[in-house]
């Protein structure tokens, strides 16, 4: 069969999401952010919420998320996204509001904002990308950096005596009465991506059903920061990251 007979609009089964625009993404080759961006774009589109969604971009690699997903965005100061989302949602309750945050943003400088927005039961979605490193600033230690893991600011490996322990912030957030859904997902295989999308959809629906705060953690890679190939980073993640941050729902009420 000629390939041109297959490549016809009626046979299309997968494509770049409609809400993801043509701007070339600045992320490194193989970066997990791109897949997570696609899932967000797909879920918003499938829910028909394009005109009602407001995203809060973080500081860090995803600071330019607003350049890629064609919705309205506010760009937050480092760690403050949940506070910003709180006000936007309270002032515009009919809007669908989510934050997109990395580990340094959400679990270090923004810990207070994260905990308190979740504890107030804000009807927002927190998308948490945990790649155990500060990517944008050049690969420094994050609160979620694994024990022994080498980064620019723990060049001999994270030493718990010096740096404390990797922070399982999702477990912490799951303890709060204000959260309805806390889950850990990944996007390293097609199956994982499909599962993660369902989780994301549920989180967004929770927010519109006024069920409280939902947090979707994506255990991710930063192959540049980890100094590995994208594929090797995925394998390293499966072996090491999943051991500390096991996938699955931590809370679903």
């Amino acid at each position: 069969m000629d390939i041109n007979e297959i490549i016809k609009p009626e046979n299309l089964v997968y494509d770049k999401p409609r809400l993801m625009n043509d701007n070339p993404m600045h992320y490194c080759p193989g970066c997990s952010h791109g897949v997570i961006h696609k899932l967000i774009a797909e879920v918003i589109d499938e829910m028909g919420m394009e005109e009602k969604t407001i995203g809060i971009a973080p500081v860090g690699c995803a600071v330019f998320a607003y350049n890629y997903i064609d919705i309205d965005w506010e760009e937050a100061a480092h760690g403050r996204a949940p506070a910003i989302a709180t006000a936007i949602k309270r002032l515009n309750p009919e809007k669908m509001v989510f934050t997109y945050q990395g580990d340094g943003d959400l679990a270090a400088i923004g810990t207070a904002e994260t905990i308190h927005a979740c504890n107030r039961g804000e009807n927002i979605v927190i998308v948490f990308v945990n790649n155990a490193i500060y990517g944008m600033t050049g690969g420094q230690m994050a609160p979620t950096t694994l024990e022994g893991m080498v980064t620019a600011t723990c060049p001999y490996g994270r030493d718990v005596e010096l740096n404390g322990y990797p922070l399982k912030i999702s477990n912490l957030v799951a303890q709060l009465d204000g959260t309805c859904y806390v889950t850990r997902q990944s996007v390293h295989t097609a199956a994982a991506v499909k599962k993660a999308k369902k989780a994301l959809r549920q989180a967004f629906e929770n927010s519109m059903n006024k069920k409280g705060a939902s947090l979707v953690e994506f255990v991710s890679t930063c192959n540049s920061g980890w100094k590995m190939s994208p594929d090797a980073a995925n394998k390293w993640m499966e072996e090491h990251m999943f051991a500390k941050y096991p996938l699955g729902d931590l809370k679903n009420v």
């Binding site: 403050r80 506070a83 006000a87 515009n92 207070a112």
Partner: peptide
């Protein structure tokens, strides 16, 4: 009008930033 006690002054001013971005008088 929404009135909210924030967890800190830092959070409060960022709430203001968020709300102001939506065109509201905050």
């Amino acid at each position: 009008m929404v009135v909210l006690q924030a967890e800190s002054e830092v959070a409060a001013i960022n709430m203001v930033y968020g709300g102001a971005g939506t065109g509201k008088a905050v």
